[in-house]
Amino acid sequence: MEDNAALVAPRAGEVPDSALLVAFANGDAQAGRQLVARLGPMLFGCAARVLGDQGEAEDVVQETMLRLWKMAPDWRQGEAKVSTWAYRVTMNLCTDRLRQRRARPQVALESVAEPAADLASVVELMTARQRSETLDAALSVLPDRQRQAVVMRHLEGFSNPEIAEIMDIGVEAVESLTARGKRALKKALYGKREELGFEDDRKQS
């Protein structure tokens, strides 16, 4: 799996995020632009997966960056990583939005019938795009915290301690969330096989 640490940590010879933020606080607009280029796509990708809506992901990232600019003059180097701070804000904003969406019907995972088809054989027949879309659809029925943990662990490539820091919980709680999230994902995939196109794919094959 791609390690997100490589995405977040500056490459050799690259100015660290925290130094860019200090430069930005001193009026260096170019430093701000570099932070947008570094953090923007990562935060957007994560928020889009968690929210399942790219428009809302844009709003969340925009709010995160505005808060970063406001906080820049008070940033104290060495206390935390800028990216960790930004992910935490983004995830909290995602949580707020997901709570506002409570009217959305949730799939009762416990009532899902036992699988009639083998998931692995169905997934094998899918294109990469179909697989990604299937995953997004299944992620959308997970409880909020499980979805965040699964996205960060299995799609963003964060380590469990990094997720623990972002979500402000213990490492064991992260392990529990990702394990339960994966179990719920499998159930969701079987339970929603018709909506996800399992039946159609089998007919086509």
Binding site: G40, F44, R49, Q54, E58, L135, D136, L155, G157, K182
Partner: peptide, 21 residues
């Protein structure tokens, strides 16, 4: 374990089809 492999295949696709702004 076949389910786990299927799930990992989906994760892999998710990583390669990352939503971009």
């Amino acid at each position: 374990s076949r389910d786990d492999i299927a799930l990992e295949t989906l994760f892999e696709a998710g990583r390669s089809e990352r939503p971009l702004p």
